[in-house]
Amino acid sequence: MLIAALRRVLLSVITLVMLAVFIFIATEIMPGDALDVSLSADEIAMIPPERLAKMKQDLGLDRPAHERLLAFLNGAITLDFGKTLISKTPVSAIIGYPLRNSLILAGAVLLIAIPLALAIGIAAAFWKGRAVDHLVSTGSIIGYSIPEFVIGTILVMLFAVAWPIFPATITASTRDPALTLLASSPLAVATVLIGSIAYLARLLRTGMVDALASDFVERLRLTGIPEWRIVFLHALPAAVVPSLTALALYAASLVSGIVVVELVFAYPGLGQELVRGVTRREVHVVQAIALCSAAVVVALNLLADLAILMLDPRTRRA
């Protein structure tokens, strides 16, 4: 098992290095640079070209690509992504709180979504083919298929504009405590929650249906074990293990991928910071966020793999 685990860790490290190079190339081919976008049209029209060239040089924008790649890789290893190009602020100071906020949002969503999805998924699997199952299946397809920006907009129209009980847009500060942030973000949480419950419930239902139809469950039933014990103590673990990787990837996508929801509600998370970084061509910020997001995906995937290795002996031979 140790060798299998080490193999997966090594694979994760290689994946991260490759991703780092890919991220660098992606930021390299972005048109324009931080100086271009930091200057107003007035400034561009009034500043002499030779002074613009000097400013570019001062910002290090004329350094060769290989030098910058090495600096980025070195920064990735030491977790020091340098400073922003224009304001010379440490990148860690720029992305620290947004990263925390994205984790808070994702954490809150998962905390609510997982138990609910478990309950819904189990119920749908247990009563497979009956009204509850049809309701869950249809509801989850709808919930998962509707884009989050549509759900968000509908919720805003209903609960912020027509019936103004929640804020339409989040005005809390980036550094506000977690509870303050969450208290001002009910519609953002609800928006992500709807899709999350739909996805996870569907995932668990499929696993539970397979587990409940399996031979070992049939044998357990024949031994006279109560149905609730079969469902919760035997079928559920068997259903969860194959879903772990998908669950881990979903959790990672919540941290790094809810850009649209962040924009709809102006939630001060990593997605907003990424969009701002791209807009302002602050490549160090973009690289750091992209690499952090990639690292979260790789790390959660690795954790899921390791968990499966522990829980399912068959995988240790692979």
Partner: peptide, 11 residues
Amino acid sequence: ESAINGFRSRQ
């Protein structure tokens, strides 16, 4: 859109 929604919801 976010700003207009904030205006409409009286924020």
